[in-house]
């Protein structure tokens, strides 16, 4: 199944990845080959098979509702590319 260039651009936009033209061309070719390969799954009739999302039995894990110390603010901000007044700083999102 051959992806078109605009499909590659659409996927990249959904994933928020800026790609060079050369990357788009290469990914178009490689992703098409991978999708051709995984198409072999269509040989199986899976209509009556339940999906497996996790191998563990689903269970609800509870814990006592106790207040415990959390990370100090400075420690969490130490890796921030930009911080201001105890907060993460990003470019304005509203005019």
């Amino acid at each position: 199944m051959a992806l078109t260039l605009s499909e590659v651009e659409h996927i990249a936009e959904l994933a928020k990845l800026s790609l060079s033209d050369e990357e788009k061309a290469r990914f178009r070719e490689q992703l098409s080959a991978i999708l051709d390969y995984v198409a072999m799954l269509n040989r199986l009739d899976t209509s009556a098979i339940p999906p497996t999302a996790t191998v563990l039995p689903l269970r609800t894990v509870l814990r006592p509702d106790e207040v415990t110390p959390s990370f100090p603010r400075e420690k969490l901000l130490a890796n921030a590319p930009d911080a201001n007044a105890g907060m993460f700083q990003v470019p304005p999102v509203l005019e």
Binding site: I11, A15, L17, S18, F27, L31
Partner: peptide, 18 residues
């Protein structure tokens, strides 16, 4: 993300997103 991730990571993010 375009600069920070290498080719294989981008490839897998793209497959997974698709």
């Amino acid at each position: 993300r375009g600069v920070g991730f290498g080719a294989e990571v981008k490839r897998r993010i793209m497959i997974g997103t698709y």
